[in-house]
Design a protein around this nucleic acid. Structure first.
Lengths: 214, 214
DNA sequence: TATTACCTGTTATTATTTTGAAAAGTGTAG
DNA sequence: CTACACTTTTCAAAATAATAACAGGTAATA
């Protein structure tokens, strides 16, 4: 039975990693694993793994461990990967195209319905059989089609404008690649991918390890 | 004077955000700001901001606040953004090209020296005036050129192989876009960008807010 | 079927992180 | 020049998170 207490974000952030490792085990036809073994592969402590998994229910069995397929499915379900989401991408530049072509997303249940851009040179081209539409049609498109997730790949100057159009039309989640923080009501989930922050942290860690100290 | 205690990763992860907001203030010609004002913009508590900044030295002044330009530069320095890094990208697919074209990186001091791929259709094409080389030349190239950071944009099956070549040739940091965990010695810093983990967290949060509950 | 090694769920402990609040320095207005 | 408003630094408390310890089951084995 699932616990009623709120799951902390620290736990959630680890779930995709469990999911990934379990997927690998599955492909290797390994059908059971203990928290100890998993701990050695994944690098978290066994104690933490047990506690994390226990947040969601009694997945394991004493003296046996966890059933890989079961656990994989359960975590997938917790993450909402058993659902299907309709998505649109706004911004068909390099990042937009990269996201559009990232095949894995379809497999996770994210179905790309449309792509928008304002650049006339991009409007009309096809990416994965989807024709890039004029961003001016975004508002109308969202009114006529129910879309769950909007993916923002435009420059930061336009990101909030696009987000506002999405929000106005009832989008539920935004995956934001623009290097800015979007404002949105509480019932719209915004998940950011800030590449330059990641790069800055790499840079910090390089210097911290004193390789670059002069 | 900088404190001698080890700075926690929790603090480091917030630094890029401070840097970004301070950059915005700078562009608006705002030259001073208090932790309270910054807290309202950025969404952290004022207390946290003060404590974070105080980890690195006495940047603020009582009764005045922080000097924006000063703080921006200092944080940039802490993050190592005053240094220059030579980088190579391996994998000239969608993500590799997106990264190569992401102009911001040059501005942060990351200078792209070469791009490699194994696809004959990509070898020879030019991305930002840099010709894509055969990945078979990577090892030789790294021996003949001192490169600081390797950016891995290949499928996960090949990621470790590429990483090993980089490590063998003395690369100091790896920015990994492949959806896998790389093994590397402690003195090589690996920073991961796992897009699908970010997407899964978005998916989780959508379901958590019960919009998708059936 | 009894015994033993194994492993989880759970509780307790420790460490880390965040928040709060007192103490102290700075600038400004009168 | 003094008093006050402002804001940081620093220290303390509270909240979170991670780790360790342990009690209670399970499965394998003889």
């Amino acid at each position: 039975m699932a616990k009623e207490t709120k799951i902390s974000m620290a736990v959630i952030r680890r779930l995709p990693k469990y999911h990934r490792y379990l997927g690998e085990l599955l492909r290797k036809d390994i059908d059971r694993i203990s928290s100890k073994e998993l701990s050695e592969k994944i690098g978290f402590t066994a104690s933490q793994i047990r506690q994390d998994l226990n947040c969601f229910g009694d997945f394991g069995q004493q003296g046996y461990g966890y059933n890989v397929k079961d656990l994989y499915d359960q975590i997938g379900k917790i993450l909402g990967l058993d659902k299907n989401y309709k998505t649109v991408i706004v911004g068909a530049g390099n990042i937009g195209q990269a996201v559009a072509n990232y095949a894995k997303f379809e497999k996770l249940g994210f179905h790309l319905q449309a792509i928008f851009d304002k650049n006339p040179k991009l409007i009309g081209i096809k990416i994965r059989d989807i024709e890039v539409k004029d961003v001016d049609c975004l508002d109308t498109y969202l009114k006529e089609n129910t879309i769950d997730i909007g993916i923002i790949c435009v420059p930061k100057e336009h990101a909030q404008t696009i987000a506002d159009i999405m929000i106005k039309n009832g989008i539920k989640g935004i995956w934001n690649f623009a290097p800015t923080d979007l404002s949105a009501p509480d019932d719209v989930i915004v998940e950011n991918v800030h590449l330059s922050e990641s790069l800055m942290i790499l840079s910090y860690r390089l210097n911290e390890s004193e390789l670059f100290k002069e």
